[in-house]
């Protein structure tokens, strides 16, 4: 049993180390730098949040964050990539296949929001913009003192720009535990994400635009122009 446990632990250690090495200097956190093909790139998603609007119970808020672990200095020059699409996928009939999408495309200092709309194509193969934007918002610059918010006639609100990374986690201690260098967390712990920023897109939509059911399933993808 003990041997088995040790063996299992060593497998985990090996995979964690590989993940760290694969990510270069960037260490993962939630989904930050999770995989070689996206780590450190404009496609790297850090987190997805979906919640009922604190301002209005009839609305749902979608938050998609990318390009994490930005220092304040790095944030000054960080920018959304016009070749990278952020796409919220929404399953409205519980088969885990998207029925609606919210697509976010940066262009000339603005973030264009499309949908929620039935996608022209589904799955991981490709995504096409096949509608006009439902909201367009100026990307808030790093130096702005207040976020720029757009409100569309359909009741959609949109924001895009740098924000403090809302994720919090004592990552170093987790790595120590998983590698056998520690047996428990510290109290208090240390937030490894403290002082770091992400590039964030926030879209708030009326729930009536999200299908007839009482629940939805959501995931977030990034895709690039080929």
């Amino acid at each position: 049993m003990q041997l088995n446990k040790k063996k299992r632990k060593s497998i985990i250690v090996a995979s964690i180390l590989t993940a760290m090495l694969g990510g270069g200097a960037i260490v993962w956190a939630s989904d930050h730098g999770d995989a070689p093909a996206v780590s450190g790139k404009t496609t790297d998603i850090t987190d997805l949040y979906v919640f009922q609007s604190p301002e209005n119970n009839s609305n749902l808020v979608f938050v998609g964050n990318v390009q994490g672990l930005l220092s304040p200095e790095a944030t000054k020059t960080a920018a959304f990539d016009e070749k990278t699409l952020l796409e919220f996928k929404i399953d409205t009939d519980n088969d885990n296949k998207e029925d609606l999408v919210i697509q976010c495309v940066p262009k000339n200092g603005k973030m264009y929001i499309y949908g929620p709309i039935k996608p022209a194509t589904v799955g991981t193969t490709s995504s096409t913009i096949n509608s006009d934007a439902t909201a367009v918002v100026d990307i808030t610059p790093y130096t702005a003192t207040t976020p720029t918010v757009a409100k569309s006639s359909k009741g959609i609100k949109a924001f895009a720009g740098p924000r403090d990374d809302p994720f919090f986690f004592d990552l170093p201690q987790y790595l120590k535990i998983i590698s056998g260098q520690a047996t428990s967390y510290n109290n208090p712990g240390t937030d490894a994400l403290a002082g770091t920023n992400v590039l964030s897109v926030v879209v708030e939509v009326p729930k009536t635009m999200l299908g007839p059911g009482s629940t939805i399933n959501v995931w977030l993808e990034t895709k690039q122009k080929s």
Partner: peptide, 9 residues
């Protein structure tokens, strides 16, 4: 069209 899958979360 955005054809190359990136990240998924």
């Amino acid at each position: 069209t955005f054809a190359v899958q990136g990240d998924q979360v």
